[in-house]
Design a protein around this nucleic acid. Structure first.
Length: 570
RNA sequence: UGGGGUGUCGCCAAGCGGUAAGGCACCAGACUCUGACUCUGGCAAUCGUGGGUUCGAAUCCUACCACCCCAGCCA
């Protein structure tokens, strides 16, 4: 994807890799991995990690594995591994034949645990979970050594084997590393390596009733796969000494796919304004029905963004632009919106759609006449071709494009004013018809100037405003879903005491317009296809709910709107 | 009162001892049959603070301050 030798962006991880390469570390290999736990859906934060891992590998002539970190059968499900694979693939990345699971290594990991026991570096501990917690000490006080810490190697071997054989109830014993109960780093205070769980695993079935912990499985999985740079998020920085301890104290050289030793590097996870990102909170949104599901177009999940109409290209561009560093940061959601606008501006065919219709009758236009105008599909892409649009006596325009008593800077339709109808004629407003009781504007009567037909001589006449429109007789009805941020505050966590992020939910995050009218060329629009509705924004045919004869469009993002800004100022 | 991490323009983020990139946002103008796009110009940072080293420091030293993470048999 990159055509230069120099990586497009530089960041501290690339700098480390560059230096490693210069020193000939790992025989010049660069091998990364994306290691999701299959217990939820991927979101834009994962996309950052995916782009980083796959991108770094590609930029440095290396490889990136997809590895499911499935060491905890009580939380993981097959449904998630499928959705994760789909999302990574959709984002545009290819793990080739390197699809792995930590569970692939369970046999080997068991042997490594035995290795540690034999070396006197791990022991079976009979303390209860509560007791282990008590013995661990606190942030400022050292822990106490477990009374089981000095069991003989033989006894530990026997006990561990019987743990594996299923002789003991869940939670009754664990295997622990023997490191240092006085370490200022809590992770080093004899961390648990294996726990008993009488649970069926989605891949290994009932073969195991003891499962390795992340801290044991992860470094060794990396080592076995020949990973050189093991990239993870900041909260794992405290685990790095343990990661290194495991690699230092287990001999995996015979089984590893390549020589060398993985290095853990941590970066800051992505945060976005107006967005929550934690699995827990996203789950709440889904389970408590604030959204329609994991793929609700308002969700920051990959599947939500996909359904909303975001392109993988835009998401990758976004991940490139935000950079990678170690400081906690919150990226302005406007950055994401900029990326999708930029991508769709060059790719999305234009179309006319009237979201909130206002009837306009052109009094001097022949009753039964229909003219078909040529309309370019994309002014920024001549190759996109053109299409025909019907024009007739009765049309609809946007309600907000007409004002009876407009402010100075309004240059759309108003009594006595002229505007151009995009691709058609200039019209002049002659009369407003209102409901006598409510004052509601029912329809507007105009006259058109036949000399101003789009593209012809007399069409040079200048007017300030150009409106989009649809022919009443030809328009196709459609449902349009306008999405806004899910939260009203930049930081959804910013709540009054007593409440939580739910209090900041935006009640208008979804506005459904059941009776929008779109130009007839859209009648057969394919699910998932994207359009720019002129002067409105980018829209995507909803891949789930849109059916022939019952079109549903999702607004991906609005166009930049300087008029809206002017209005706000006044 | 422990350990780890981070502090460069409103938001991201380069910078690695030689005198502050870039993007987003924002402002102004040009263009415009999308108030879009595009273009052009503008925009801001005493580089967390105070000391010190140096001819010279965002970059080195030092003290301090602020924020984030860690006491799951989660990852």
């Amino acid at each position: 994807m990159k055509d230069t030798n120099q990586p497009l962006t530089t960041n501290f991880i690339q700098n480390i890799i560059t230096e490693d390469l210069r020193q000939g570390k790992n025989d010049g290999r660069v091998h990364t991995r994306f290691p999701p736990e299959p217990n939820g859906y991927l979101h834009i934060g994962h996309a950052k990690s995916i782009c980083l891992n796959f991108g770094l590998a590609e930029a440095n002539g290396g490889l990136c594995n997809l590895r499911f970190d499935d060491t905890n059968p009580s939380k993981e499900e097959i449904e998630f591994v499928e959705s994760i694979k789909e999302d990574v693939r959709w984002l545009g990345f290819d793990w080739g034949d390197r699809l792995y699971y930590a569970s692939d290594y369970f046999d080997q990991l068991y042997e490594y645990a035995v290795q540690l026991i034999k070396a006197g570096k791990a022991y079976v501990c009979d303390l209860s979970a509560e007791e282990i917690k008590e013995y661990r000490g606190t942030l400022i006080e050292p822990g106490k050594e477990s009374p089981y810490r000095n069991r003989s190697v033989e006894e530990n071997l026997d006990l561990f084997e019987r743990m594996k054989a299923g002789e003991f109830p869940e939670g009754s014993r664990v295997l622990r590393a023997k490191i240092d109960m006085a370490s200022p780093n809590l992770n080093m205070r004899d961390p648990v390596l294996y726990r008993i769980m009488h649970k069926e695993h989605h891949r290994t079935g009932n073969k195991w009733c003891i499962y390795p912990m992340y801290d044991f499985a992860h470094p060794l999985s990396d080592a076995l796969e020949g990973i050189t740079h093991s990239i993870c998020t900041l909260e794992f920085a405290d685990h790095r000494p343990l990661y290194d301890w495991v690699l230092d104290n287990v001999d995996y050289s015979k089984e590893a796919k390549a020589k060398g030793r993985p290095q853990q590097i941590e970066f800051a996870r992505l945060n976005l304004t107006y967005t929550v990102m934690s699995k827990r909170k996203l789950r709440i949104l889904v389970e408590e029905g604030y959204v329609s599901g994991w793929d609700d177009p308002r969700m920051p999940t990959i599947s939500g963004l996909r359904r909303r109409g975001y392109t993988p290209e835009a998401i990758r561009d976004f991940c490139e632009r935000i950079g990678v560093a170690k400081s906690n940061s919150v990226v302005d959601i406007g950055m994401l919106e900029h990326c999708i606008r930029e991508d769709l501006n060059k790719r999305a065919p234009r179309a006319m759609a009237v979201l909130r219709p206002l009837k306009v009758v052109i009094d001097n236009y022949p009753e039964d006449q229909v003219e078909w105008f040529e309309a370019e599909n994309n002014p920024n892409d001549p190759d996109a071709g053109s299409r025909k649009i019907p024009f007739s006596k009765v049309i609809y325009i946007e309600q907000e494009d007409f004002m009876e008593d407009p402010p100075k800077k309004f240059f759309r339709l108003a009594p006595g004013r002229e505007v151009r109808l995009k691709h058609a004629y200039i019209i002049k407003c002659e009369q407003v018809i209102k409901d006598e009781k409510t004052g509601e504007i029912l329809e507007v009567h105009c006259t058109y100037d036949p000399e101003t037909k789009s593209g012809e001589q007399g069409s040079g006449k200048k007017v300030k405003g150009t409106l989009h429109w649809v022919s009443a007789a030809h328009a196709v009805k459609a449902e349009v879903r306008l999405y806004d941020y899910l939260f009203t505050k930049e930081n959804p966590e910013d709540e009054e005491d007593g409440s939580d992020f739910r209090a900041n939910l935006n009640p208008h995050s979804l506005v459904v317009l059941p009776s929008a009218l779109v130009e007839p060329s859209l009648a057969e629009a394919e699910p998932g296809s994207r359009y720019q509705f002129l002067r409105q924004g980018y829209f995507c045919v909803d891949p789930v709910d849109s059916k022939p004869g019952n079109l549903v469009f999702n607004r991906i993002v609005s166009l930049r709107d300087t008029w809206a800004k002017i209005k706000k100022e006044e």
